[in-house]
Design a protein around this nucleic acid. Structure first.
Lengths: 134, 134
DNA sequence: TGACTAATGCAACCGAGTTGCATTAGTATT
DNA sequence: AATACTAATGCAACTCGGTTGCATTAGTCA
């Protein structure tokens, strides 16, 4: 008798966070958000749920080279601009510019299932202004 | 009396590794290479030298989302294709496709000093063949 | 109501990278 | 060559993100 996967409180809460937050979030941010709504969930559980959601294709992994993994409910493929100082994130959509580069790499080098990771970094206007004046 | 920075054995060896290896290397790989040539250098030293080389613009930092930082003597801006299973790396040069995207982001969103990070991932022919047959 | 077992919590661990501090060794000056 | 100065190193101890093994809790089905 095969047991179906179970609908647990933690799972629902994590999915809801990812849906509502709308942007790449870290495990810590998720946990704090759950605490704020009165739900204490262990980090192990969160990591395990996130891994499950990612391997189910429900969420995606992003990382901004700062040593923390972020998770996102990504409805359509997109990129981000991240402010180097305040870490503010905005979505960047661009019509698939890189599809032909991927195809070229596949053809020329014998790679299959070629994908890409593209992120932009910059200084947002608020931080730029603050930095001028100091 | 201002002391100039000193030419040390470790520094020279690390720079030579980066020059010869020609590809993004981790601290561990560098240290092992130095050991192989009879030089025991502490990881702290390597990290500190790498940080210095990066901030001097002599080396660049890359990371392939596997939790390890790689360093590279990057003579001209380029990207990489990384095999998802064997981690083989090849350089990808593309005439700056993304410059106009960066400019657009700067203009439309008020970001300054916009740069990008782009890496390709795929399965190399060797690994693809191995995976078929199992 | 009870049995089964997926999901959770916890402690202990791992590995990358960093920090404070005493020691070593380039470099400049005599 | 001897000395003084201090940049660079080594080391131990630590931080932090993430994982693992295992006992306990709690959905789900009969």
């Amino acid at each position: 008798m095969m047991q179906a996967h179970r609908e647990t409180l933690a799972k629902k809460a994590i999915q809801e966070q990812l849906t509502q937050y709308h942007g790449p979030v870290t495990e810590v941010e998720i946990r704090q958000a759950l605490v704020r709504q009165g739900l204490r969930v262990h980090k192990t559980t969160i990591y395990r749920q996130l891994a499950a959601l990612v391997s189910a294709g429900w969420a995606t992994v992003t990382n901004f080279a700062d040593g923390v993994t972020r998770y996102e409910r990504q409805l359509q493929h997109h990129h981000h601009v991240v402010c180097r100082s305040c870490k503010r994130v905005e979505e960047v959509h661009m019509s698939n510019h890189l599809a032909k580069e991927e195809a070229k790499i596949a053809r020329a080098r014998g790679f299959t299932k070629v994908t890409h990771v593209l992120e932009f970094f910059g200084t947002c206007h608020t931080c730029a202004r603050r930095q001028e004046s100091h």
